[in-house]
Design a protein around this nucleic acid. Structure first.
Lengths: 146, 146
DNA sequence: CATAAAGTCTACTAGTATTATAGACTTTAT
DNA sequence: ATAAAGTCTATAATACTAGTAGACTTTATG
């Protein structure tokens, strides 16, 4: 059940963007700055941020003084949205996916034991990632620091 | 968050073995029989069952009339044990793994937002897979059939 | 207007993991 | 003796992952 580096870097970057939105006047930060802070290869991060941009989760400004910033308030962006953009469906098997359902090949889905359990797992993950926003994360981090 | 074919096939095979333990006098079944029922490539399944055997979850009998059977009553085998044997740790990132901890590289683990959330995800998955036994699954399947 | 800072876009590559397949071997019942 | 069954190790084909490269566009500013 591993999170890919792509997903990990993307989530870390988004958490930074949320922090910047809250604590910097412009709310903007450059790729290389995020890359330096989190030790993420800059060129790799570039692709990830681009994907997040195409998904409408961040906006960017080109040219001198440009950078990336969240497309919406951090409380309106869930980790589920970020995860799905970068790593695809949450569900362990396609036949329990809400966003990308496909049959699994079991003769009867309704009585497939594996499917039942994986459905529970999917829901448990979705319950966390779809209700946790970037604002939630920032709040927890600040609480842990205090 | 995808389940590998290896993990999927292994879990399906174990559910069959639990059913066989409950409903057949010998409690034993052959690879090719499981392979046929679930449309799993026989040679692939062979390796998977071997891994489960080396992990002590199933026993086998060689020769004519041989086959595989559960090493313990189905209520003493959790899906978590099976999953970990075939697919490794449940945790999305190593730094929240109970069974295979490794640092992630964040400067301070205690205040890492990603780590907090992934810890929750790990616990949610573990809560399901470590409390669900093969017996649980069989019961649910029978309830769904009725 | 030249320049440098910044993002955009696409292609590529090395390494690793996944999903098998093959085949020679061992054990056991009949 | 034979055939049914599991054991074990090697290999192959493919896909995926993580990362690199480089040419391009946009924009602020001296």
């Amino acid at each position: 059940m591993r999170l890919s580096k792509r997903g990990e870097y993307g989530l870390r970057a988004m958490i930074i963007l949320a922090d910047v939105q809250k604590n910097s006047p412009t709310g903007m930060i450059q790729i290389k700055e995020i890359s330096a802070r989190e030790e993420i290869p800059a060129k790799f991060l570039e692709q990830i941020l681009l994907a997040l941009k195409n998904a409408g989760l961040v906006h960017s400004k080109m040219g001198v003084g440009g950078g990336y910033y969240l497309a919406r308030p951090s409380k309106e962006i869930t980790l589920g949205q970020i995860f799905r953009t970068l790593d695809g469906p949450l569900a362990p098997v396609k036949c329990v996916s809400q966003m990308a359902y496909e049959p699994c090949g079991c003769p009867d889905e309704e009585t497939c034991g594996l499917r039942m359990v994986m459905g529970d797992v999917r829901n448990a993950i979705a319950n966390i990632l779809d209700t946790t926003t970037l604002a939630t994360v920032i709040k927890r981090v600040e609480a842990a620091r205090a």
